[in-house]
Each structure stands twice: as structure tokens, then as C-alpha cells.
Design a protein around this nucleic acid. Structure first.
Length: 816
RNA sequence: GCCGAAGUGGCGGAAUGGCAGACGCGAAGGUCUCAAAAACCUUUGAGCUUAGCUCGUGUGGGUUCGACUCCCACCUUCGGCACCA
């Protein structure tokens, strides 16, 4: 046994110690202002407290924390807060299944999460914590709801809503994926219900403006597609023959094909349908409508399904040529888009084509295909010149679009129109665990908003959970019955609660002003912190949370609560962590961090997750790979802790090489950390460790340089592995936390070395490498290259055609 | 069907016009040990007539002195959207 054997790296001891100490010293609590420092708000999308943190959570939060720590060490005054998006279905489902109180269940989970977040080594400022199910928080949801209501940004409307039969609630359009409930995957149905909406469509145009935000192009594209702007013409088809002063509006982007209309199709929900249907068709039309209401959304919108429809017996008039056009009902036409009615142009629209083919309707070509082969057996949707189109014959169809639109507007047949795929945000949920909507219904006064000074409308505690499709709050008489704020007679409350995406639409502002009680946030705080400098989270929120948040910010701006238009200046989306080719999830592919932490410690787990690959592309977990990181941290520990065996004066050449290398790795690491390339930053730290390890074994370096190099290494590691770096930092003689230090510096003077390696190629293949001075000139380089024996070998019997010189890098001799 | 991203050793990945495979895992051999583990050292893309050479970044073409990198076409995988008129 060695007598002077140094202490071994023991993660569990040092990690517990520093978690406690950091908390005690409050080193991560953000001051609103620090002289000479720029504020920096780094935010991870806050979690739903679902039980315990799994490694998927670690993958989302640990690299984000490392980046915030890096910014702090760059000298920013960083705020990196955390909170809990704690309203939502799982709590209520747990209550239904196991009889646990949702509030209790939620608070227990939050306690787990807090504890586990601490053991992750996060630098969160817990003094700003947010819990959305806390009345102190959700009263502001109600407050904003009322402000929206007063500004006509919130309204109640009856109509067909997306209905999830399993979760027993309505859903917003954004929360239906492929016709399934985004949460549970159940087929979504349509249900007629009065529901509350936020008028997000008022902001459709502004939401399309994304030039000023630094977000991944992918997310911007998804939002653009979701908003789905299209421009065209709404044109009226006269119904006088059947309905006095009646007409049907249809929206089209292809007004150039107006002369090709041979039928009209109304959606089964179209409001004029029942007034125009003729007696001999009434039975079949009514049974068709009834049937359309029964089938699920996925079935109805499946592109594979045959187009079906029924003739109504009625006709309308095409204003452009006064032709009589038969009107059908067909469920391939959606009530929710455009006007809920389409003009059928089978020759130039694939859907209309298959409908016409099925029902034997005329297919009239009005745009002549440039390539005649393309007109066989399907619709021609390409460009061409107009035929069969009256005065517009011969025009190129894209030009005709304009001319016909002008003509239509001049003759008042219709108007140019812009439509959007985006629908208003349905926020009513027929569930308990959410923010009560602050509205009272009075027989005398109608819909009455709860006055601001009566907020919050508290969510009652004792409620029967009985998922019947009615909000559980309807069963709580104490909640349900109230008096009208206006006239004082008995009235009932709105019993639906708000979509939990309302909670997360403005939470970032509350972090800036956590103590504000009388107003949601103080303008001074907003001035200090808004907008968020760096937002980090998954791409699954592209058209939900991230869209709602942008809308909310703009609405709050127009209500003069905030002065910014975009909440998140920069956005980074991490990829997905997979294991065995499957997504890691609590149920199907679990990966529990506890045994990993027990065996290796938090630092190793954090570092490994960042080392797996580029954060934005996701990672592939392997149980054996983590060994490498653990070995690395042990090596770091060894070279830093194991005492002073170095000479006062080192070897001059070795010292110089180490200095050069040190500055090089710092440059590389700083560049990589800046843009979230943790994997290559760690690889560089490993290279540096390996280099130092060799020196450590030889012991031939000056003492001063050695200790500088060790410090440099520890400072670089600090954001990635906060515990081991803190422990080493203190042990090598520092009194302040490593996390309050500045990142190491580099100087290009050291990086540009005097010698460079000149690569010499013959016909593009490397044949020699020669060390030369970095001041070398072209003619000198070419001469040296030509003299190389290795190069000459490949030039025998050949004629040199060309010589290429890339400054300071390479010579290529072309010969044949 | 449409839009987007990606495809590199046994594996995760690096290199974005100039030495392909950094860094790590795994594997093989060695040192230490009674032994094992750990640790450390060496080797590790394939092939060949092995001081060296040839081939090699999904497939096929192209641009270039030079291509993983740029252009065209295709294949595969993964995301998103999908009867949006």
C-alpha cells in the first residue's frame, strides 16, 4: 500500500454537501440589477409534475442548466428559474382511479420534483418558483380572462367542438393530432357545445411575422403551416330559385377555374342546407347528415376514404356564365374552413375529380395543360392557358386569376379574401383540475363577468369525480350557486375550467416579478428581464404552447400589461433521447436515474447526456457508454487532487506547448458552449485531460503553469459537472464558488503557432507533410513541395500541369 | 400525398470545400494481482503482393486541382402536416 495515497473521487459525499451549501449561500438567486452586468433570462419549459423525474427530464433540463451556468460564468447576471405546470388531467385521473385528492397528489409530486431537481445539480433560483395550481397564480389567469373578455378577445360560442370521449372534455384544434387526442390517443369526435374561446385568429397575420425571433427554422415553418394563410376569392352563387335573396358563398384559391364549375358541395353542417333541400331528396340528405355526425374525425378526414355525397335537389347560378349548377352535400367539405362550401371544378382539383367521377358529373377543362399527356384520368392542377372561359380565353391562368378577381369585385359577385387554417383557441375544459372560468350566468343579466376585486374564484376542494362529460364542478352546489354580481339574484357559475395551456402562456412573466401581489407583474421587473433571452424545450410544443405564448404576449401588449411583442428572443429545441430505438417514456421504455446516480453520481449522468451527441439532434442512451464519462471525471480528479510533485522550473519547450494547447482548447470550448455543442466541448475537455495526464505522469512542467492549467480545466468543466468542479476548486485553494468565476480566456497570439504543417498532394492525394514557418510564401512552398522525395516518386514519367497553393495549408501538384 | 431533417467503423458520434473516422464505448493483447475487479499501456475502417499501396462517408451522375461537405436524380429512416377548396 502506498502510504500517501490520496482521497478517491466520491460523488455521493460531495454532491450532497454542495447541494446544501449552494442553497445556504443562495449563490443562484438572481438580483434584479447588478452594476456592470447584463441581465440574462435563461428558461427551460417548466414541467408537469408527473411523479418522478425520469432521464428524459434530465435530458431536457441538465444541458439547459449547463448553458445557463456557462452564461453566468461569462459575466451575465443570470436568472434561471423553475416552476411547475401543475394543473392538468393526470392529477384528476389519479383522483378518479385511486381516490387521492388531486391537490395532495400534485403537491407530493412537486416535492419529489424539487428534491430531484436539486440532486441534478441545477442552478435554479428557487426563490422565484411558480406553482400554477396555486390560487395566487391562477387568479391572474382569471384576471387576464376578464381583460380579454372586456376587449372581446374572449367569447362564448356554440358549435361543433373536438371531443375526447376518454378524457371527457373538449379540445382545442392544436390538441388534436391525426384525429386523435394529443394526450391519450383516443379518436376525437365532434360535439355541439357552448364553449369559451380566445380570439387568437385576430393575431393570425402578426403571428406569421417571425423575422425578428431567433428560432429554429423548423419551428417557424410548423407555425406558418399551422396558421395556414391562403389568399383567394369568395364568390356568391345565387339561390333565388329556391330561397329569396339567398346565396351560397364559396371560397377558392383557383378563381381562374371558375368557368369549370359543374357542381357545388356543402358541408353536412352548412346552415343553408336544410332550407334548400328539395322534398324528393330530403330523406337521403337528412340521413346523410346524421351519419356524418356519427363517424369520427379521423375516419371522416382520411384521404384514402372514397368521397361521398348526396344531391340536394337544389341548384344555384354561377354568376360568371349564368349556368345552373347542382348542389350536393358531401362530408369531404369541412364546415370549419373557408365558407363550408366549395365550388366543384373536377377538371382541375383532384378531390372534385374523384367526386365527379363517382357521381357522373361533367368534367370540363378550362385550363389547357402544357403537356397534354397530363390530362388523362386525373385533374390537371398545373399551369396553362384558359379555354372554355368566355372573355378570359387564352389568358395564362395565373394572370387570369387577377383579371377574373377584378371582374368579380367590379360586378359585386364576390371579394378577394384571405383565410387561415388557424381557428380560435377553445379554452373550455369539462374537467376539475384547472382554473375556474370567472363567469356567472344570471337569468336577468345574462353572462356576467366576476368583478376583478372578487378574484380569485377558488377551485373548491371537495368535489365528486364522476367523468360524465359535465364538469365535476356542476356537482358542487356550494360552488355552482352564487349571486349575480350585477343584480344580486341567485345565479350559477360557469363550471368549465381553462385549458392548462393558458397557465403556461404567460408564466415566464411571473418569474420576473414573483412577489407582486396587486398587479400580475411590476413594470420595473419587466424592464429588467423581458423578453426571455434563451428559451429551451422540446419541439412537441411548436403549435401549442409556443403559439399560444406568442398570442398571449401580443394580447397583453395590446392591453398594456407588457411592452414586448415576442416572449422568447431565442429558442433552442433539444432532440429526443432514445434507448433501444424507442423513445424513453415512463410506461413503455423507462429509464430511472436513481441507480445511475447511486453508481456514478449526478455529474457523470449530466455529462454523459451532454456527451451523447448534438443536443438538438437527440441522443441514443447506452448503459455501457457512461463508463467513459465516469473514467474521465476520475482522471480529472486524480490529476487535480493528487498533490504537488512538480518542479519549480519546467522544461521550456514543454511549457510552451502546454500554453499553446491550453489557449487552443479554451477557444474551441467557448465556441462550442456558446452554441450548445456540449458533445464536442466535452470531447475537447477530454483531450485536454489526456494531455495533462501525460504531463502528470512525467512531472516535467513548471509548478505555476501546472496549477494554471488545472484551474483552466476545472473552470471549463464547471457548467457541465458542477459538483466535482466545485470540490476540486476549493481543494486547490480557492474560497469562492467556482460557479461565480469567469470562464477562462484565450489569446489568438498563442494559437497562431510559428510552425505549420504543409500538406502536399499529388492529384488531390496526400503524399507528404512538411513543417514550415507560418510566414512561408507561395513560391517557397511550391519549391519545398517539389523537393520532397515522397512527392517526386509520384511524379516520375509525368508532366506537371498545374500547381495549387492554399495559403498556410496545402500544395496540390496536378500532373499526368 | 406535401413540407422538413438526417444517412460516416462493431456502436454513439467528429470533420461543412483541403490529412475522413476527433472524443468516447466495445473488443483484442499487455502491466499490476494468488486470482478477479479497478486502474494504466498498446492496437483497433476494409483489403493487399504490408518499410508501402489501393479502396472507403446510403445509391447513381455532375461541378472542382481537390467533395462526407456544393449541384441534379433516386433509395432509406425519422419528425411534422394532411380532403385547407
Amino acid at each position: 500500500m502506498e502510504s500517501n495515497k490520496f482521497e478517491k473521487y466520491n460523488p455521493s459525499v460531495i454532491e450532497d454537501k454542495w447541494t446544501f451549501k449552494w442553497e445556504e449561500d443562495g449563490i443562484y438567486e438572481a438580483k434584479n440589477n447588478i452594476k456592470g452586468k447584463e441581465n440574462y433570462f435563461a428558461l427551460s419549459m417548466f414541467p408537469y409534475p408527473s411523479g418522478n423525474l425520469h432521464i428524459g427530464h434530465w435530458y431536457a433540463f441538465a444541458p439547459a442548466d449547463a448553458h445557463a451556468r456557462f452564461r453566468r460564468m461569462q459575466g451575465y447576471n443570470v436568472m434561471h428559474p423553475q416552476g411547475f405546470d401543475s394543473f392538468g388531467l393526470p392529477a384528476e385521473n389519479a383522483a378518479i382511479e385511486n381516490g387521492i385528492n388531486p391537490s395532495k397528489w400534485t403537491l407530493e409530486n412537486i416535492n419529489n420534483f424539487r428534491k430531484e431537481f436539486r440532486s441534478m445539480g441545477t442552478s435554479y433560483d428557487w426563490s422565484r418558483e411558480i406553482v400554477t395550481s396555486d390560487p395566487e397564480y391562477y387568479k391572474w389567469n382569471q384576471h387576464f380572462f376578464l381583460e380579454f373578455y372586456n376587449k372581446n378577445l374572449a367569447y362564448r360560442s356554440s358549435g361543433l367542438a373536438n371531443w375526447c370521449p376518454k378524457d371527457q372534455t373538449t379540445l382545442a384544434n392544436e390538441q388534436v393530432k391525426d384525429g386523435n387526442c394529443e394526450r391519450c390517443g383516443t379518436d376525437v369526435l365532434k360535439k355541439e357545445l357552448p364553449q369559451w374561446f380566445f380570439r387568437i385568429t385576430d393575431y393570425a397575420e402578426e403571428l406569421l411575422e417571425m423575422d425578428k425571433i431567433n428560432w429554429p427554422e423548423k419551428i417557424k415553418m410548423m407555425q406558418r403551416n399551422w396558421i395556414g394563410k391562403s389568399t383567394g376569392v369568395t364568390i356568391k352563387f345565387n339561390l333565388n330559385e329556391f330561397l329569396i335573396d339567398g346565396y351560397i358563398d364559396t371560397f377558392t384559391t383557383r378563381i381562374d377555374t371558375i368557368f369549370g364549375v359543374t357542381f357545388l358541395v356543402l358541408s353536412p353542417e352548412h346552415k343553408l342546407l336544410k332550407s334548400i333541400v328539395q322534398d324528393n331528396q330530403r330523406d337521403s340528405v337528412y340521413s346523410y347528415i346524421a351519419n356524418a355526425g356519427r363517424i369520427s374525425e379521423i375516419e371522416r378526414t382520411s384521404t384514402e376514404r372514397d368521397k361521398t355525397g348526396v344531391f340536394t335537389g337544389a341548384y344555384c347560378i354561377n354568376p360568371m356564365n349564368d349556368e345552373r349548377v347542382p348542389i350536393y352535400v358531401g362530408d369531404y367539405v369541412l364546415a370549419s374552413y373557408g365558407t363550408g362550401a366549395v365550388m366543384g371544378v373536377p377538371a382541375h382539383d383532384e378531390r372534385d375529380y374523384s367526386f365527379a367521377e363517382k357521381y357522373g358529373l361533367e368534367i370540363r377543362t378550362v385550363v389547357k395543360p402544357q403537356d397534354k399527356l397530363n390530362n388523362i384520368g386525373k385533374a390537371w392542377i398545373g399551369a396553362g392557358n384558359l379555354i372554355n372561359s368566355g372573355n378570359f380565353n387564352g389568358l395564362e391562368n395565373n394572370i387570369a386569376k387577377n383579371s377574373i378577381a377584378d371582374f368579380i369585385e367590379k360586378n359585386k359577385f364576390g371579394t378577394r379574401t384571405t383565410t387561415y387554417h388557424l381557428r380560435d383557441w377553445l379554452i373550455s375544459r369539462q374537467r376539475y383540475w384547472g382554473t375556474p372560468i370567472p363567469i356567472v350566468y344570471c337569468d336577468q343579466c345574462g353572462t356576467v363577468p366576476v368583478p376583478f376585486d372578487q378574484l380569485p374564484v377558488l377551485l373548491p376542494d371537495n368535489v365528486e369525480f364522476n367523468p360524465t362529460g359535465k364538469s365535476p364542478l356542476t356537482l358542487n352546489e356550494e360552488f355552482l350557486y352564487t349571486t349575480c354580481p350585477k343584480c344580486g339574484i341567485e345565479a350559477i357559475r360557469e363550471t368549465d375550467t381553462m385549458d392548462t395551456f393558458v397557465d403556461s402562456s404567460w408564466y415566464h412573466f411571473k418569474f420576473m416579478s414573483p412577489d407582486s401581489k396587486d398587479v400580475p407583474f411590476k413594470s420595473k421587473d419587466l424592464k429588467n428581464w423581458a423578453p426571455i433571452n434563451q428559451y429551451m424545450g422540446g419541439a412537441e410544443h411548436a403549435v401549442m404552447h409556443l403559439l399560444y405564448s406568442r398570442f398571449f404576449t401580443k394580447a397583453l401588449r395590446d392591453l398594456q400589461y407588457v411592452s414586448i411583442s415576442e416572449p422568447y428572443t431565442k429558442l433552442f429545441n433539444q432532440g429526443m433521447l432514445i434507448k433501444d430505438h424507442k423513445k424513453i417514456s415512463k410506461r413503455s421504455n423507462p429509464l430511472n436515474p436513481d441507480p445511475v446516480i447511486k453508481k456514478y453520481g449526478s455529474d457523470t449522468l449530466r455529462s454523459y447526456l451532454m456527451f451523447l451527441g448534438p443536443w438538438d439532434q437527440g441522443g441514443d442512451w447506452s448503459d455501457s457508454g457512461i463508463n467513459g464519462i465516469y473514467r474521465w471525471l476520475n482522471r480529472v480528479w486524480t490529476i487535480c487532487i493528487s498533490g504537488n510533485k512538480f518542479q519549480i522550473d519546467g522544461d521550456e519547450k514543454k511549457d510552451e506547448n502546454l500554453v499553446i494547447f491550453s489557449h487552443k482548447i479554451t477557444k474551441k470550448i467557448l465556441e462550442d458552449m456558446e452554441v450548445f455543442k456540449f458533445n464536442t466541448a466535452i470531447a475537447t475537455m477530454m483531450e485536454y485531460t489526456n494531455y495533462l495526464y501525460k504531463i502528470y505522469e512525467e512531472s516535467k512542467i513548471s509548478k505555476k503553469l501546472w496549477s494554471e492549467s488545472i484551474s483552466r480545466l476545472v473552470l471549463h468543466i464547471a457548467p457541465i459537472a458542477p459538483y466535482i468542479s466545485e470540490e476540486i476548486w476549493r481543494r486547490i485553494g480557492n474560497n469562492d464558488s467556482v460557479h461565480l468565476q469567469n470562464v477562462p480566456k484565450y489569446d489568438d497570439l498563442y494559437i497562431i503557432s510559428e510552425d505549420i504543417t504543409l500538406v502536399i498532394q499529388v492529384n488531390g492525394k496526400v503524399r507528404d507533410q512538411i513543417k514550415v514557418s507560418n510566414a512561408i510564401q507561395e513560391d517557397e512552398a511550391l519549391r519545398i513541395a517539389g523537393e520532397s522525395e515522397k512527392v517526386r516518386k509520384f511524379l516520375v514519367g509525368k508532366t506537371i500541369r498545374k500547381k495549387i497553393y492554399v495559403e498556410g495549408k496545402l500544395v496540390n501538384i496536378v500532373a499526368n
